[in-house]
Design a protein around this nucleic acid. Structure first.
Length: 151
DNA sequence: GCCAACGTTGGC
DNA sequence: GCCAACGTTGGC
């Protein structure tokens, strides 16, 4: 079992969207960065995923989801009406992947990015050290640290 | 809205 | 293959 973090603008998809229908899988699609895509492809059913809210009033980690479907071709890349349409992607060899996530837990307060940055044990977390990466692995030690900061 | 970081594109 | 131009992400 592995640990991950994914970023989302809560206007697009927030922890509340997961919590509203906890049994319903949500497709994590629209990832259009190769490094992030490769991490998506490394996800396995049962892996745990921190849901991070970006570009909003309360930037930080909002809760946990788990992987219920491993990577499969992201349908949006072939949909001309989708903002994620990629005319250069070939159905024989799809360029982009998606996974399905289900709700696990909502923290009663978002763990602020500021607090994460202030924690020395998290200094080498990719969230802090690598900007603009929207899907990333989290080490077990980092995971435990984050969980210990949640309420 | 500003701007730093940084991935992608395309000319050469 | 290099690199400048450009576009996007995302914190503030």
């Amino acid at each position: 079992m592995a640990y991950w973090l994914v970023k989302s603008e809560p206007d697009e998809c927030s922890i509340d969207d997961f919590a509203r229908e906890p049994q319903r899988p949500i497709r994590w699609d629209g990832v259009r960065n190769y490094q992030a895509r490769n991490f998506l492809r490394d996800m396995s059913v049962g892996d745990q995923v921190l849901i991070y809210h970006s570009s909003c009033a309360q930037v930080g980690v909002a809760g946990i989801a788990n992987v219920v479907s491993a990577a499969y071709p992201d349908p949006a890349q072939f949909d001309p009406d989708s903002p994620y349409h990629d005319p250069k992607s070939n159905p024989e060899e799809p360029r982009w992947s998606a996974v399905d996530l289900c709700f696990s837990r909502k923290f009663s307060a978002v763990i602020p990015l500021k607090q994460i940055k202030a924690e020395p044990a998290l200094a080498d977390m990719l969230l802090v050290s690598r900007s603009r990466l929207s899907v990333m692995p989290v080490s077990e030690a980092q995971w435990q640290q984050i969980i210990s900061m949640s309420v």
